[in-house]
């Protein structure tokens, strides 16, 4: 399966959890820490992100940047 990852801007995340619900891989969860605004923020909790972008699409705060393995890399691995 293609691999991806996300960078979540923890300072602007408000911990609404919409990304967590939207993630088909259950890769995301809420942190135990709080950010500068007092919110628990979303973070990767499993290393199984596929870079499907769902989390970023529903994120109301545009806090998520998504990266994915290039398709060429995937072919090589196979």
């Amino acid at each position: 399966m293609i691999k991806g990852t996300v960078i979540i801007d923890r300072d602007i995340c408000k911990g609404c959890e919409l990304c967590i619900v939207a993630c088909p891989q259950e890769s995301l969860g809420l942190s135990k820490q709080i950010n500068i605004n007092g919110y628990r923020f979303a973070e990767l909790v499993q290393d199984n992100c596929t870079g499907c972008v769902n989390c970023a699409i529903v994120c109301p705060d545009v806090a998520i940047t998504v990266y994915r393995q290039p398709k060429s890399a995937l072919k090589k691995a196979v």
């Binding site: 972008v53 998520i64 940047t65 890399a73």
Partner: peptide, 10 residues
């Protein structure tokens, strides 16, 4: 990022 391509940004 670590060989991954940017596919979504603000």
């Amino acid at each position: 990022l670590n060989g991954y391509e940017l596919i979504y940004k603000k």
